[in-house]
Design a protein around this nucleic acid. Sequence first.
DNA 1: CCAAGTGCGACCAGGTTAGTCCGAGTTTAG
DNA 2: CTAAACTCGGACTAACCTGGTCGCACTTGG
Lengths: 131, 131
Amino acid sequence: MIRLSRRSDYGLVALKALRELGVDDALSARELAVRHGLPADLTPKVLARLAQAGLVESILGKSGGYRLARLPELISVAEVVRVLDGDATLAPCREGLLECNRFESCDIRHPLDTLHREVMMVLDRMSIAQL
Amino acid sequence: MIRLSRRSDYGLVALKALRELGVDDALSARELAVRHGLPADLTPKVLARLAQAGLVESILGKSGGYRLARLPELISVAEVVRVLDGDATLAPCREGLLECNRFESCDIRHPLDTLHREVMMVLDRMSIAQL
DNA sequence: CCAAGTGCGACCAGGTTAGTCCGAGTTTAG
DNA sequence: CTAAACTCGGACTAACCTGGTCGCACTTGG
């Protein structure tokens, strides 16, 4: 199935919100959440992950918050998805634990990987600036 | 996240297997399952769904089974996924029951729909013949 | 020193999906 | 004509994943 997880969705909304911020401003997770109707307790988590991936800067202390770490043109949707959802492959074979019992004989893996790459390229072409 | 469900995966494997079949041959679901290591009880279900969607023909009775209903070049990966997983949209907002509480103010929906269309086009360009 | 932030881990709950079991209807081989 | 082999469809169970919550430690500005 082709669907964004909720996390990725929230992440995109948050980044878009951060986009229209002054250079030295910062927006707290809570403030961002209430303004855009995101779950109050989940938003900090999403932002924290974006921060440790370097997409966003966190500012500690009172009157702290988050701010974009790069120009919005330089953050692609693909990157956000990868950070928040991990980059799984199209084929379920490739997942962590479940071993595909036909792993060797599986001949649809390669074409599926190709497809996956193409899909990611599509997501790569859209940046936060275009949301 | 971008991942195929197990069902779709099985469906693709099955279609690929059916591809190399004589015109008047048919392969039973059970036979197909054991040959390719698919779950024995799930395979008939997947095939049945493909059949009622018209991608595959079912042949009743003894020595019956399944066979491709069209040339493999005319069956796209996108179609298989759509049949087996339904066609969801990228944005979780769009799902059945859960109402997005910021549905009106949501401004990332349109770009996301665009992305979804592009992704489906990618899946559309690959056919069973190319697996 | 205190209030308001982030950061991070553990935890619960609900939904979705994979997988199984069963019965019924159909067709062909012998 | 009979029996075997197959498809079809629904109902049911179990496991996994995800969204969401709570709580505590650390940092910073006033």
